[in-house]
Amino acid sequence: MKTKIMAFCSSPVLSLAFRVILGSLFLYAGIAKIVDPMGFALSIYNYKLLPDGLINVAAILLPWLEVIIGGSLLLGIGATGGALIATALFSIFAGALTINLIRGLDIACGCFSTAASGGSINWFYLLRDLSLLLMSLQVLLFDQAFFSVTRLRKK
């Protein structure tokens, strides 16, 4: 039983599914933020974690990182690296969410949309983030690059 669970968790097919999910989400989230840098900057500001001088820098560059790792995961080009960055990002987001949930700040998530009216953060957002974190960890550890561009080129 234990080995079966282990085999399932480390299954490369599962990795493929997670890559598709994470890749699409990152592409979507990244593009939404590139379209509205001011809105995203405001979201970051509201978290009250970054110094003022870095807010815009993050708002300008982070969406591109999301788009690039989204493409990397979806197409399977350097997907291990993409998963590594994704894991790091989700950990950072989890930290930011937790801090502000404890502080009780009434702020918008700014996760998949930059709209200030997107609803305030709550523990569900943290749970969602942690699930995505687990997915990226799985890809990081077990992905075998099914249906990846890298693999297709080798064949």
């Binding site: 300008i60 560059l61 969406p63 591109w64 990182l65 788009v67 690039i68 790792i69 990397s72 350097g78 997907a79 291990t80 690296g81 993409g82 998963a83 590594l84 960055i85 990081l140």
Partner: peptide
């Protein structure tokens, strides 16, 4: 290998962003 790929992806995004 992941760290190397990650660094490359980060550089590409930085270049695109800038």
């Amino acid at each position: 290998a992941g760290v190397k790929q990650a660094a490359l992806l980060a550089i590409i995004s930085l270049a695109l962003g800038v």
